[in-house]
Amino acid sequence: MFLINCPFCGEREQSEFKAGGEAHISRPKQPTELSDDEWAEYLFMRKNIKGIQFERWNHSHGCRKWFNIARDTSNDQIKAVYKMGQKPPVI
């Protein structure tokens, strides 16, 4: 059970949040222009790396805001929390 520092509400228990998968995958602006392969890349392909991973989380039982975290998947340490729209920090 992590403690996650919601950028709006402060430090809360993991049970108040929902994970939303890998961050920084933008929905293509013009999906119709994409080939099947390119669309599949957006739709299905996720890195799932060991190490620092940028993830989307939602404070679903609090302020309902989405934000990003940088989590080390090998030990679950959260290295950074940042708002939607911000660039991932260099870690």
């Binding site: 929902k18 939303g20 933008s26 929905r27 989307r56 939602n58 679903s60 309902r64 805001k65 989405w66 939607m84 729209g85």
Partner: peptide, 13 residues
């Protein structure tokens, strides 16, 4: 509701 909020906050702010 969560899905809608997701799109509003992240894809179409």
């Amino acid at each position: 509701l969560a899905k809608l909020e997701d799109y509003l906050q992240t894809e179409w702010p």
